[in-house]
Nucleic acid binder design. Structure first.
Lengths: 171, 171
DNA sequence: GCAGGCCAGTTCCACTTTAGAACCCACATT
DNA sequence: AATGTGGGTTCTAAAGTGGAACTGGCCTGC
C-alpha cells in the first residue's frame, strides 16, 4: 500500500494517518500548539530540511489543518495557523505527549508541565466516555460496524466467525 | 535530524514518536487493539510488506509495547500481544480514530462504532482535565518547563522574551 | 546603486527507506 | 514425496529524506 492510498481506506485511523501520520507532521503540529507560526521558526526549532518542511506545511494547508494568514505585504509573507480542524487535533497531541511523559521520561521527569487555566492546576489529560464520563479501558469497549463500514473491512479479528478456521482472507 | 536521534530529544512528543511515529506502527497497533495477534493476519489485513512488518513488530517488542507469547511448540510459534505500556496507547489510538470520524468520514458516516460495556452506550472519547474533569481547550492550557526540561529547548515560542526581536536562535 | 541581510521557499544530489515479489525453513498433513 | 502453513529473510527498483546551495522580492546601510 502506498502512502497516498491510505486516505481511501474505510478506516478513520488510516484516513487520519494520511494527513498526520508522517515522521514530521506531528512535530510541526506540536510546534503549532506552542505558537510557532513561521517557516524559519519551524525550520530552526525542528531541524527539519527546508524542502520537507515546505512540503508538509503545504499538505497541512491542503487538508485544512493549517491556514496561511498574511502578516505583511511587500513582500507578501504568511504565517501558518491552526484551523478549527487543526485545533481538534489537540487530544491527539496531548495523548501522545502524556504517554511519553509516563513511559519515556528520563530520571529527571517530564520536560513540560501543563496548567489548566480554568481550574488553576497542573494536570494530565484523561480520556473518558462521552456518555458516562468514566475513564476508558480498552477491555470495556466493544467495536461494532458503523454506517460507513465496508463489508468485512477492518472489523475486529474476533468478529470474523470466531476462529481462524472460519476466516476469509481480509485483503 | 535523523529518525534515531528523535528518541534522545528532550520532548515527550519526540520520544513517543521515536516509538510509534512511523507510517505503519500505528496501524499495527490499531489492529492489536482489534485483537489481531499473528504475523500473517497483520500482513493480510494491512497489506504491509513482510520485511517492514517484521521490522516494526520487532521494534515494538524491543520497546516493550508488544510482547511475544508462545501459543504452540514444534515449531515454536509466537503471537504478539500488547503489554501494559502498549495498552496505555489506547487514548492515542482513540483520539486519532475520533478525529478521523469527525473530520474524515465520508457521507456514509463513520466506519466503526464503539460501545462502552460499562454504561451500555455508544460513545466518543473525550479528553478532560485530571484535576477538574472539564473538557480541555488548548486555549485554556499554559505550558511550563518541567523538572526534565533542557534549557530553552522546545519551550513555547512566546515564552522566549515575548517577541521575535528578542529571541535567540533555538538550534 | 550596490553589497548584504531577511524570509520563504526551490533545486540538486547523495543517501536511506520502502514496496513487492521471491525465496527459505521447520514442521504437519495427505 | 508432494503440498500446505506460519513466520520470517533476501533481493531490486522506486520513493522519500537530509543537507547544502540557489532564487527572488524587499529593506537597510553606505
Amino acid at each position: 500500500m502506498q502512502w497516498n492510498e491510505l486516505g481511501e481506506q474505510t478506516c478513520s485511523m488510516s484516513r487520519t494517518l494520511s494527513v498526520i501520520g508522517d515522521r514530521w507532521t506531528l512535530l510541526i503540529l506540536r510546534d503549532c500548539f506552542l505558537k510557532v507560526r513561521r517557516f524559519d521558526d519551524f525550520q530552526s526549532r525542528l531541524g527539519i530540511g527546508r524542502p520537507i518542511l515546505a512540503d508538509r506545511l503545504q499538505k497541512l494547508v491542503d487538508s485544512f489543518v493549517l491556514t496561511k494568514v498574511a502578516y505583511q505585504q511587500n513582500p507578501m509573507r504568511y504565517e501558518y495557523r491552526l484551523t478549527q480542524k487543526g485545533l481538534d487535533l489537540y487530544p491527539v497531541i496531548m495523548a501522545i505527549v502524556h504517554w511519553g511523559d509516563v513511559h519515556m521520561s528520563g530520571k529527571k521527569g517530564r520536560p513540560l508541565l501543563h496548567r489548566h487555566m480554568t481550574c488553576g492546576h497542573n494536570f494530565d489529560p484523561v480520556q473518558v466516555c462521552s456518555e458516562c464520563a468514566e475513564t476508558l479501558d480498552p477491555r470495556q469497549v466493544q467495536v461494532l460496524p458503523g454506517p460507513g463500514a465496508a463489508n468485512r473491512d477492518h472489523m475486529p479479528a474476533d468478529a470474523a466467525a470466531g476462529s481462524r478456521a472460519g476466516r476469509a482472507k481480509a485483503g
